[in-house]
Design a protein around this nucleic acid. Sequence first.
DNA 1: GCTCACTTGTTCGAATACGATCGTTTTAGA
DNA 2: TCTAAAACGATCGTATTCGAACAAGTGAGC
Lengths: 387, 387
Amino acid sequence: MSPEQPTEPTGKSLFSLQRRERLMEDLRAHGAITVRDIAAKLGVSELTIRRDVNILADEGLVSRVHGGATLPSPLDRSAAGRAAQHSYSIGMVVPSLDYYWPQVISGARAEAEEQNLRIMVRGSAYDAADNRRQVQALLDTQNIDGLIVAPDMSGHHGHELLRWLNALPIPVVLAERRAPAEIPAHRLEWVATDHAFGAGMAVRHLWQEGHRRIGCLTDSSSPTSPHVVRGWQQALAALKIPLEDSVHEDSARQDPAKQGNGGRASHFDQVLELCTKTGTTAMLVHSDTQAVAFVQHCVDRGLTVPGDIAIVGYDDEVAYLAEPAISAVRPPKQYVGKVAVQLMAARLAEGRMRPVHRIELNPDLILRESSIGAPRIPAAGVLQDSL
Amino acid sequence: MSPEQPTEPTGKSLFSLQRRERLMEDLRAHGAITVRDIAAKLGVSELTIRRDVNILADEGLVSRVHGGATLPSPLDRSAAGRAAQHSYSIGMVVPSLDYYWPQVISGARAEAEEQNLRIMVRGSAYDAADNRRQVQALLDTQNIDGLIVAPDMSGHHGHELLRWLNALPIPVVLAERRAPAEIPAHRLEWVATDHAFGAGMAVRHLWQEGHRRIGCLTDSSSPTSPHVVRGWQQALAALKIPLEDSVHEDSARQDPAKQGNGGRASHFDQVLELCTKTGTTAMLVHSDTQAVAFVQHCVDRGLTVPGDIAIVGYDDEVAYLAEPAISAVRPPKQYVGKVAVQLMAARLAEGRMRPVHRIELNPDLILRESSIGAPRIPAAGVLQDSL
DNA sequence: GCTCACTTGTTCGAATACGATCGTTTTAGA
DNA sequence: TCTAAAACGATCGTATTCGAACAAGTGAGC
C-alpha cells in the first residue's frame, strides 16, 4: 500500500554507522543535504542527524552549514583543524613529581594543548639507570614521536645515557640540562635556566644592599648546584670580592656519619662560625628548602635576618613560607616546559633541516624580607643598571 | 523564449557555503563578478551576496571592489594592509651587507613576512660608534618597536654600547652576538651560532679522516674568531691532542707593515713552515675567504689539497668556489635571522613576563674535496657517534 | 533479575541566516 | 567641480536552526 512512505519509515532501524553511510551516499549524490530531508528520509529526529553531521564534520568528511551539510569545501574554515589532526605524542621523563617539576610539567601541558600534542609524563629517580628505564618504558609501550627528558648526567653512567639519548631515532629535548661540550651529542637540543645568571643576580642584589662579603651554601648532589656556584664565583670576580676568603660550603659533602637533622644543625653552626670569622654578612643558599632550614636555624641561634645575616634562596618553591619570607631566585619553570614543547613541535614539523637549538632562559629575582631593608654601606653607583 | 530564467530561480535554495563556492567558480571563470548578477543568478538578495563577498574577502580569497569582487590582487591593500596595520616595525642593524649577513637578513625577512612584521635593515661599519649611530638613526626617523642588532662589542666602547642597548626602551635582540657575563645586560636576548661547536665538529671530522695534528688559522679582527678558537681548543683537549705544539696563527696580528697581499703570502708561508715543523696535516681556517686564499697559496706552492694538507673553512660563503672545493662549517644563517624575528615577535606579543631567551644554533659541516678522500691513519672507533 | 553504557528523542532558550529599510559613501557622467 | 544614481553598511525583525539539559529506550554483561 502506501508506496509513498519514506524509504525507511519504521521497518528496521539502522545503526548509527549505517545511518551515516546513507547520509554520505546522499551527500555524494546531491552535493548537499538538509538536516530536515535526511531526518525524514531515515525516519529519525533531526537532532540525531545533526549529531551525525557533527561527527562527520569532525572527521573532515563533510562541511557543516546552517541547515545541513555539504561535501567538504576548501572554503570551510573549520577544516583547518583537520590538518593538525595527525598530531604527535611526546613523552616526558622528569626526576621529581613534587619539587620544581610540577610547574615545568604544567607549562609543557599548556603548550602541548596549544600545539595539539599529546604529552605523557613519567617520574623517575635521580639516577641514570632509572632515567633510562623510564624512557625505555615509554618507547616500548606508548607510541612516542619525541622525548623531553631531564636525565641525571653525572659520572660515567650519565655520559653513557646521554650518548644513548643522542642516538635515539626520535628527537630528544633536554629540560634544565645541558650536554657537556666534551660529549658530542650533536643531535640533542635543550632548554635550561641560566642558573649562573640567577646566582649572579642574587650576588649583585646583595652587593647593592651593602654586603661586601657574600657566601654560598650549596648542595652538590643537585645538578643545578655547579651552575649556581659558577655564577656566584663569576659575580664575585666581577665585583672584585676575593674568592679565597669567601665562605663556600656544600651540605652534600658533610661527614656522612653526621647526616640527619643533628648533622645538619652542626653543619649550619659551622657555616655561621665561618661567616663570623670572615665577616660574611650575606649568604646565597641553594635549594630553598635548605634556605628555609638555614633561616630557621639562624633565628633559633638568636641571629636576626636580614639584620645579622641576609639570605637569598634558590628555586623559589617554598621560600615565601619562611619567617621572615626569603628572597629567592625564581627559575621560569613554566617556560622551561613551554619552550621544551615548542622546540619539540618545531622539530617534528620541520625535520632535520632545522638546526639544533639550545636555549637558555633567565630567572627572576623575587625580593622578600630576608635580604632587604637592613642597610649597610650605601650602595655604590657602579651597578646602576644591574637590576 | 523563456530559457533566460536564472540558473537556480526558485528550485532549491542553496546553503551559504555552496553559494560562496558558486560565487568563487564564477569569479575564477570571469575574473570578476558584480553583486547584482550573482544575486540574480542565485536567487538571493544582493545584501546576501555582499555579505558573502565580505566573508570571502576576510579570508583573502577575493578582493572587494565597488559593485562586486575580483580575484585577489596585490594592489588590494585592504588584505595585507589591514593585518599589517596592527603589527610592529622592527629595525635591524648588521655590520655587512655583502658577506654572511645577506642570508641572515633573508631569513629574517621571510619570518617577518610570516609574522606580519615590517623590518627595516641598515648596514653599519664594524665599529661600536657607527653601530650606535645607525641604531639612533632608526630610532629617530622610523617608528621602531624592536631592534635586532649585531653590534661590535670589543673594548670599552663595545661594552658601553651594550649597556646603552640594554637600557633602550624597546626590546633588543642580538644576532650572532652574546653579551659577556660580566656585563649585566639582563634585558638583552640573543640568537647566535655556536661557533665553538662548529669548530669542534670540524676538528673531529679531520681527526676521523686520520689527521693527528690539526692547526687553526684565524682572524682575530672578526667577532666570531674567539669562539672558533675556543671550540678548536676544546676539541683538541677532548681528543687529547697537545695544545702547546699545535699551530695557531692569527692573520690579524701580523706585522702591520707587511699588510697587503705580499704580507699575506709571507704569512701563509710562515704558517706552512710551522705545519711542516710540527707535523700538522690539517688546518681549520676561519673565514672562508681566507680559506680560499690559503688553498690557492698551497696549490701555488705545489702542495696538494687534501693530500699534503687538508683544509676546512668556516662560514661557507665562498668555499665551494675554490679549486679544490673546500669543506666548510656552515652556520645556519637563515635561521639566525628567522629565530631573531621569532624572539622579537614573541617578546612584543608577551611583554615583560616572558623570561629572557638566549638561543644557540648549531652549524652544519659541509664536506667537500679539501678534507676527504686522502686516507691516513684509518679512523679509530672512538668517535663512532660523533657525526 | 539488575546495572551500566550507549544511543535516541523532546523541549526550549540561544544563535544564526537572511531580508527590509534607511542614511551614508562611492562612482560615473556632465 | 558638481550632481544623481548606484552601492554600501548599520540596524532591526523574522524565520529557522542549533545545542544543552534532561528523559527514555536498548542491548551487553553480571
